[in-house]
Amino acid sequence: MFSVNNEFMFGKMSFEMAQKSVCEKFILDTDEEECVVSTDTSSCYNCLYRKWTQQSFVCIQRSRNEQKYSF
C-alpha cells in the first residue's frame, strides 16, 4: 500500500484503503481540525504520523524506522 518512498499509493480520497492500512503505530492527530475523516474510525488519513504531499501522504513512522510492513 506504500511506495518505496513510504508514500501511500492510493491518494487522498481512498478512504477504505486508508482504514485498511492502519498499523499498530497509529496515533490520532491531536488536533481534531486536521483529521480528514471521522475520528470514530482509525484511518491513516487521521494519523499524527502522516505528512501530506501533493498527491497523497508519506508515513513518517515508516520513514523513521524503515520498517517493512507486510500488507
Partner: peptide, 16 residues
C-alpha cells in the same frame, strides 16, 4: 485555515 503548497522541498510539519 489556509492550505499552502505541499512540496518536498518545503519543510512543513504535516499539512503546511
Amino acid at each position: 485555515r489556509h492550505q499552502l503548497y505541499l512540496h518536498e522541498s518545503i519543510a512543513y510539519t504535516s499539512h503546511n
